[in-house]
Design a protein around this nucleic acid. Structure first.
Length: 99
DNA sequence: AGGTTGACCGGTT
DNA sequence: AAACCGGCCAACC
């Protein structure tokens, strides 16, 4: 299985109401330095994908998206009880996906 | 075929 | 404390 498939599996396994970082997804996918590529993959997900891409944020606890996409991500997170905001970083110790 | 460009990160200056 | 640097992968010129 290739890198992309492993990333999809890891993202699919992020629990409801939790978030994780690009770096951790990369780590769990077996390629610790490939955080950027994780973003690249999620960026080009097909429209109707059932993958919980919105649970992946950056190492500062903020969403890396902008504009309309950012609003969509915030809404999805809020809908599952995660107090995500555009400006205020999430506490990863509280909402993060523990190893 | 080779260069560029990203939803990034960690370690080292 | 802030800037820098190399990695790693896929897609698109």
């Amino acid at each position: 299985m290739g890198f992309a498939q492993r990333v999809y599996q890891v993202v699919a396994a992020i629990p409801y109401g939790r978030v994780t970082t690009y770096g951790q997804v990369a780590r769990l996918a077996g390629s610790p330095r490939a955080a950027r590529q994780v973003g690249g993959l999620l960026c080009r997900l097909p429209e109707g994908s059932r993958l919980p891409w919105h649970r992946v944020i950056n190492r500062f606890g903020l969403c890396s998206l902008q504009g309309e996409d950012l609003q969509r991500q915030l809404a999805l997170l809020q809908a599952e009880g995660v107090p995500a905001a555009a400006d205020c970083p999430l506490d990863l110790a509280r909402y993060g996906w523990p190893d």
